[in-house]
Design a protein around this nucleic acid. Structure first.
Length: 592
RNA sequence: CGGGGUGUAGUUCAUCGGCAGAACGCACGGUUCGGGACCGUGAAGCAGGAGGUCCAAUUCCUCUCACCCCGACCA
């Protein structure tokens, strides 16, 4: 534990008045101005004494939560042997953000950005039996991610401390209990940190697995876009949100297909204008190419957009890019802006692998129109099953605000900061890595079922500031404040003299009394920052106290006579208390 | 990686071909003393880096690096 007390005159890291020009977000500005952080290079920050105190408290609360949930703390090396990442083939799938380093023997390491392989490697060093399972191992360690772009001070870093946990189970049922337990513990941890989180269904990204949830704090500063219903019964990230397709003209009789001249541009609007038909009746065709070079034609109702994440999952691809105009012409033998699923398999080049993926929305329309795989030719009255078919059919549509959830409730779009997440990993890692097994009751080796769980500490710290601040500065919740008490004494030879020496204290005495109070608070175990500067005006001390944002401000001056002024950062009024009352109040607060 | 922007004192910014400036901050002295007080003095800069044009470049041109913002990714 760090020292409980500090004199401001000795505190490394001063407050500043000017707003740094590069700071856009409140959290960045305030943490910088108040002397909690300084930047090293993009996405890498120094935590100053005030900053590390807050960081430590967040860590402590996180740790208490994890321990309470029965997880056990470990430490893994930051340099991961690269062969481990090769074992799961993640060197190629996440290569864009991995950083590598070689030792003097040219042995290659990866700077750890997440530690699934390391934990599996650790666990497989032991003979795990079903009797050992389940268990959950966690650590606090620096993570390195060579992010393409950093953002907003501490919100998105290239180097940060993360609490990451990895759980190992014999069965899926067993895992689900842990997942639920982590869900609850996370909610409680963030609650203690003063953050109200929304649990949002989201995409796994490069971590792998089948499902996961983000813990999001609603904020305009956030990067996560998600949808919720008014009652909160459903919350899902934009990438995965499921919604109802409304029925359009399903009752209409199927008309014969007709090929027509269509001298038009290549956009959806051009089609609407030319034929005078609604956008939803048009078929949207989007060509993608995956990492294996497969062509994927996504077809969807014209008023919807393709969700690439959903599409990737459906076709089991790792990466998608849009097909180029040349590819459309030379490989598919179609025409940009005029692609059609009708007869497309017959016209493509022989060496081309094409997967046609249809969104379920195509079942809500009849007699659709769209291109005819030739320039300036369109086709009218296309109907699924009769005129065209897909290799895969499913949900590949992007949700939007106002769409209805599967329960029929309208979506509201929200933005938030993702402070933590929980992942189902299943056999994703244990299947790929050798010997990632446990022995079951019958003595047979089986892969273990896994989950993982992360919380970013610095991001959480910034998020707290995003939520708790006012125009004067930070307003730390008590649980994470760098100190509990900000003690100020005000000099004033003059005012003391003017007020008459008998009842009032002289300046030198005020400082002595402050020092006594400071020592008394120390004895009582109160964390206190004493602004002991003698040459600074009252206004400056107050402004600094407001900026730093410690919950309780105690003022001693010639005006307070035998008492001490008590002011809470969250309130505008103050009151005069006797020293005894101050101590009583402080002790009652710490008991809460 | 694509698009946009910024690099001049610790910080925020002026100067925009002709001796490098201000405010805040910092140091020292003095006056103040309950909401960022005032006066004086002082220290602080190879104008991000390299190259070019010019009698002369912080200023114009080229390249490069760093940082910020918007997009594709994430704790």
């Amino acid at each position: 534990m760090r020292g409980r007390i500090m004199r401001y005159s000795k505190l490394f890291g001063k407050t500043i008045k000017d707003t740094p020009k590069d700071a856009i977000l409140v959290s960045h500005t305030l943490l910088y101005r108040a002397g909690f952080i300084r930047e090293s290079t993009a996405g890498r920050y120094y935590l100053l004494p005030l900053g590390i105190r807050v960081h430590d408290k967040i860590k402590k609360i996180t740790k208490e939560g994890m321990d309470k949930a029965g997880a056990q703390e470990v430490v893994t090396p930051i340099l991961h042997p690269k062969y481990l990442w090769e074992e799961t083939n993640r060197t190629s799938s996440v290569g864009f953000e991995l950083m590598t380093i070689k030792d003097r023997n040219k042995f290659e390491f990866v700077l750890g950005g997440t530690a699934e392989e390391m934990l599996v490697d650790l666990v497989r060093k032991f003979q795990i039996s079903y009797k050992d399972l389940p268990f959950n191992l966690y650590q606090f360690s620096s993570k390195f991610r060579d992010e393409m772009r950093t953002r907003g001070g501490l919100l998105r870093l290239r180097e940060f401390v993360m609490k990451d946990a990895y759980s190992f189970h014999a069965t899926e049922e067993e895992f689900k209990k842990e997942y639920q337990s982590m869900w609850e513990i996370y909610t409680r941890i963030f609650d203690r940190l003063g953050l109200k989180t929304i649990v949002v269904e989201s995409d796994n990204g490069y971590i792998g697995g089948e499902y996961c949830h983000e813990f999001v704090v609603e904020s305009e500063a956030g990067e996560s876009k998600f949808f919720t219903t008014k009652d909160g019964s459903y919350a899902a990230h934009e990438e995965v949100a499921k919604f109802q397709r409304d029925q359009k003209n399903v009752g209409e009789a199927e008309k014969p297909v007709q090929e027509v001249e269509a001298v038009r541009g290549t956009t959806m609007e051009d089609g609407v204008k030319l034929h005078g038909l609604p956008l939803w009746q048009q078929i949207k065709d989007v060509l993608f190419v995956d990492e294996k070079g497969r062509f994927i034609l996504a077809i969807i109702r014209g008023d919807y957009e393709v969700n690439e994440i959903k599409l990737m999952h459906l076709v089991k691809a790792y990466q998608l890019r849009h097909g180029t105009d040349e590819e459309i012409r030379q490989k598919i033998n179609s025409e940009p802006g005029f692609i059609s699923p009708v007869g497309i398999k017959e016209i493509i080049e022989k060496d081309v692998k094409l997967v046609v993926v249809a969104d379920t929305s195509l079942r809500t329309i009849k007699n659709a129109y769209g291109g005819a795989n030739k320039k300036h030719k369109d086709r009218l009255n296309m109907n699924i099953d009769r005129d065209y078919a897909s290799d895969l059919e499913g949900d590949i549509a992007l949700a939007k605000e106002g769409y209805l959830s599967l329960e029929g409730k309208p979506f509201f779009a929200k933005k938030g900061i993702e402070v933590g997440n929980i992942f189902q990993l299943g056999f994703h890692y244990s299947a790929k890595m050798h010997d990632a097994n446990f022995v079951d009751e019958k003595g047979k080796a089986k892969p273990y079922y896994m989950g993982c769980y992360g919380i970013g500490l610095a991001r959480t710290m910034a998020t707290i500031v995003e939520v708790y601040h006012d125009d004067k500065g930070i307003v730390w919740p008590e649980a994470v404040a760098p100190f509990q008490v900000h003690l100020i004494h005000l000099g004033g030879v003059h005012s003391a003299r003017l007020a008459g020496a008998s009842a009032k204290r002289a300046t030198s005495e005020v400082r002595e009394i402050a020092e006594e109070v400071y020592k008394k608070l120390q004895e009582e175990g109160v964390e206190v920052l004493w602004d002991d500067r003698g040459n600074v005006s009252a206004g400056e001390k107050f402004a600094d106290a407001d900026l730093i944002g410690i919950p309780i401000r105690l003022v001693i001056s010639s005006k307070t006579e035998e008492k001490i002024e008590w002011k809470e950062r969250t309130k505008s009024e103050s009151e005069l208390l006797t020293p005894l009352q101050v101590l009583q109040r402080l002790s009652s607060r710490t008991e809460d």
